[in-house]
């Protein structure tokens, strides 16, 4: 089973040290995402349907709302990874692109000597449970900035830039997003949602994909994960209550969902955040 060694929540977003042992389900989130290989055999991350290597020399940068998932190359082998979920607001001062905040220029990040050092410092501070001091935030900021800058540097080998301009959002899709957010926890009836948005079901799916970059089901999963993480970290309700509230009929189905979208079971995640906050 996958294990969370340490988790830190802060103004920057979340930083997790995970032992990953199996493939995840395709998912997306509103944070920018950096995945670094710390230990174990090489693996890969599939981003927008294309695999990118995750190894000691290669990290992966995923922009907000870009669908992706982790996949081991050798089944059963454990990989220790440092995973950053960066809040776009925290990173706003460093954006290189006017069209969107915190969008990486390309997915593949080459782990240079300097990046490797920043990475080692960050994981060390995190596993020593010192993630809450200013030092940690400084390291994290330097690490994110360095990766971000690198993904916008020109290389002769080609760009693999994301490139796609984000279209202006259609008012019907904006309405659907509002409805999804308000009715989170209720079973999602996509046919009803399409009608409420004033579109036929196939047209709704097509437009949603075009404008948001992922299917509505994955979007809903991301919202559920956000709420789940928020409430797990607060530590006030039971895991079962949170699951029920978010529309899962049994604790086991909530657990399966959480593992597929967020590596570890919800109870493990809560324990790591709480241990860390103490």
């Amino acid at each position: 089973m996958s294990v969370a060694h340490a988790v830190a929540h802060g103004v920057f977003g979340r930083v997790c040290l995970y032992v990953m042992d199996k493939a995840m389900a395709p998912h997306a989130h509103r944070e920018g995402h950096l995945i670094f290989h710390i230990h174990g055999p090489p693996a890969e991350v599939v981003v927008d349907g294309r695999p990118y290597p995750l190894s000691s020399g290669q990290a992966v940068a995923v922009s907000p709302w870009q669908p992706h998932f982790y996949r081991p190359l050798v089944a059963g082998d454990n990989v220790l990874a440092l995973v950053l979920y960066i809040r776009p607001g925290w990173f706003v001062h460093a954006s290189c692109q006017a069209s969107e905040i915190l969008r990486f220029g390309r997915v593949g990040v080459e782990v240079s000597d300097r990046l490797a050092r920043l990475l080692a410092d960050t994981s060390q501070l995190l596993s020593a449970r010192r993630g809450s001091d200013g030092d940690f935030e400084d390291r994290l900021s330097a690490l994110t900035q360095a990766c971000f800058d690198q993904t916008w540097q020109w290389t002769a080998e080609g760009q693999h830039f994301i490139g796609r301009e984000r279209p202006l959002r259609d008012f019907r899709i904006r309405r659907a997003l509002r409805l999804l957010d308000a009715a989170l926890g209720e079973p999602v009836d996509l046919a009803r949602l399409s009608r409420a948005a004033g579109l036929s079901r196939p047209h709704f799916f097509k437009l949603f994909r075009e404008q948001i970059g992922l299917p509505p089901t994955i979007y809903v999963n991301a919202l559920r994960m956000e709420r789940a993480i928020e409430r797990l970290a607060l530590g006030k309700e039971t895991v079962a209550d949170i699951g029920l509230d978010l529309g899962f009929s049994t604790p086991a189905s909530f657990s399966r969902f959480f593992i597929a979208n967020g590596v570890v079971p919800p109870s493990t995640y809560r324990r790591s955040v709480l241990t860390h906050a103490q």
Partner: peptide, 15 residues
């Protein structure tokens, strides 16, 4: 130089 933080600000990847 390749290890210097300002190497990251160069328009082209600098090894």
């Amino acid at each position: 130089a390749a290890d210097d933080p300002s190497a990251f600000a160069n328009p082209r990847l600098l090894t």
